[in-house]
Design a protein around this nucleic acid. Structure first.
Lengths: 360, 360
DNA sequence: GGAGGTCGTG
DNA sequence: CACGACCTCC
């Protein structure tokens, strides 16, 4: 028996809009921890993984694990019948072959019930190796969408290169070649300071380290970025391969700098307090001033220079999840599948895509 | 070597959006004076000419004349990758076969570089005879767009008739006939008083004459309109063929009226001073209250009654340039190609279209 | 934000 | 030949 109540139907709607093009059907695996889903795309090139935490629901009950085999086209149709701010309850019996959805209008004056037929789906649950990535790029999801779309106008694939300089997306096409360089910005580093720190194990390590090794670590990390922003080019950091994501890597080097630049630390730490970092998960799209305020820029964390090439078609597809979060994180390691991750209030959606190899 | 820096990519984007449907490719002829382009449409019926003054650029350098043969589809794709307020720099080597475009984000945290392949295009530069037109209509570009679109829904061609009464657009279609009459308004005459006076030789003449022949000339012209607006029908003015654009033509006839209507002259001249005529070139789209304020109306300058018929398809196409200017000028002479001109801060775009002859 | 039209894909 | 996705207009 599963029963889960979601405050806003919008989340489910967007989630399905995000992935229905990539995947035709998959199991919603419901456990007491929540609901998760994992599926290869139809051509078995990309993998999508969705996680909805139990405590993100208004109400959640799952007596024992149930896989709900859902056809996304069907579920999408049914979800289109919900208004964004309807309260939606999904229910399924243990032995059930249907998924029941109930939509309650905000003011309870309307109740709609739907039943979607379920299907048996072979549970080929793929183990995703928990990789420690060499580089992580955090940026506004709208900007990632834009880049993917822009470059897809010109070419088939994109080369993503992360260096101290920033992250470069480049593409070659028949009509034109393109190269987009995003430099890290102060604004981004402040905004994304703690973004996604709970979502990956490495990040937790990073956090713990920050808390234990040094009392001021939390502050220092930011400071580190501020410092690096000005005089970026100390490539020695690339040699630091402790395998953790860190803000601009290497804490050790900082310790020295810290003393020299105590003053600036103070000022920047003040700045941080003033704008106490939205701390991830802007589920609802923030009020856009004009163009979606994609101008916070990008934050880069890396301990290794990476260059990888990917199919733009998939990245464009992934970027549909920008409806779920204002922020996206891209994790890369050489010769390893890319991870594109959107984190929202109640969970996250992660896309994996193997790089193109050899000649693109 | 060409290097030109434009403060806002929007101009280029709009320019290409305007003409890409009409022309597939053409030479951007770069000289030290600026960039100009001239091309027949794909079916060799219409001609488009674009002029971008060198001093309208934030930076401009062109050592020697270069024709840059551009495929508009390619360039359009690349321009789609620019945001409206990106700073765009275009560069080309003298012998280069590529056009380099660099987009810098407002806050410099993003730099995108594109290289568009160029092509050889036979430079069949057409000499456009500098015609003195019998009639000129100045009106909000949005209104012209609307008329062209509306009539194109009903018929294939439009008959444009300029008389003292105003300008009439009429069209006959299978389902319905249409006739739109725009009368000259005070507001338009005041707003457009000096519009485009620097863009054409005839206009300068007009201006000079106004200043020399008669001290009060500037005032008189408006007054003339005020009078005509009320009691239109004095067709005798059409016989005045001094070959210059004048506000409603013939100064001589006015002299008589002036004395009779001194009072009204004064009042109208005051009005003019109060709203000292935006003086052309509203490059940036003015803040539109709701519907684009197309209600200023139309100003008509003529010294000959003209009736011409044109293909609506092309006028609809021309009117795409309304993104470039709030104002459009239409110049007509009997049996001569129509000229539709949009003037913006850094130059202008002119469309020429031969009239249909005989039965439409 | 929604609907209709066009283009590309299966 | 039909469906779905994308883009533009309303």
């Amino acid at each position: 028996m599963l029963e889960a109540k979601l405050q806003q139907a919008a989340l489910l709607k967007r989630l399905l809009d995000s992935i229905k093009e990539l995947v035709t059907d998959a199991n919603f695996n419901c456990t007491e921890e929540g609901i998760h889903l994992q599926a290869m795309d139809n051509s078995h090139v990309a993998l999508v993984a969705v996680k909805l935490d139990a405590d993100g629901f208004k109400k959640y009950r799952c007596d024992r694990p149930i896989p709900l085999g859902v056809n996304f086209a069907s579920l999408t149709k049914v979800l289109k019948c919900a208004k964004d701010d309807d309260i939606v309850t999904i229910k399924a019996d243990d032995d059930g072959d249907v998924l029941n959805l109930t939509y309650e209008a905000r003011y309870a004056d309307r109740i709609a019930e739907y039943a979607v037929k379920l299907m048996e789906i072979d549970a080929d649950s793929l183990d995703i190796p928990v990789t420690e990535y060499d580089a992580r790029v955090t940026m506004p999801s709208s900007e990632f969408t834009r880049i993917a779309r822009d470059l897809s106008l010109l070419g088939e694939s994109v080369k993503i290169e992360v260096s101290k300089e920033g992250v470069r997306f480049s593409s070659e096409g028949e009509a034109a070649n393109a190269s987009i360089l995003l430099k890290q910005t102060d604004a981004a580093c402040q905004k994304y300071e703690n973004y996604g720190k709970e979502t990956k194990t490495e990040d937790d390590d990073d956090k713990e380290e920050g808390g234990s090794n040094k009392a001021k670590k939390g502050k220092v990390k930011k400071e580190d970025k501020d410092v690096d922003m000005e005089g970026d080019g100390n490539e020695d950091e690339n040699n630091d391969d402790d395998g953790e994501f860190k803000a601009k890597s290497d804490d050790e080097g900082e310790d020295e700098k810290e003393d020299e630049e105590e003053e600036e630390e103070e000022s920047s730490s003040k700045k941080r307090k003033k704008a106490p970092s939205k701390n991830g998960k802007p589920t609802k799209k923030a009020k856009k001033s004009e163009e979606g305020s994609p101008d916070v820029g990008v934050m880069i964390e890396m301990n290794q220079h990476v260059i990888l090439t990917f199919s733009l078609k998939y990245l464009v597809n992934f970027s549909k999840s920008s409806t779920l979060s204002d922020t996206v994180q891209i994790m890369l390691s050489n010769d390893v599948p890319l991870l594109v991750s959107y984190t929202f209030g109640q969970g996250d959606i992660k896309y994996y895509l193997a790089p193109k190899i050899g000649e693109e």
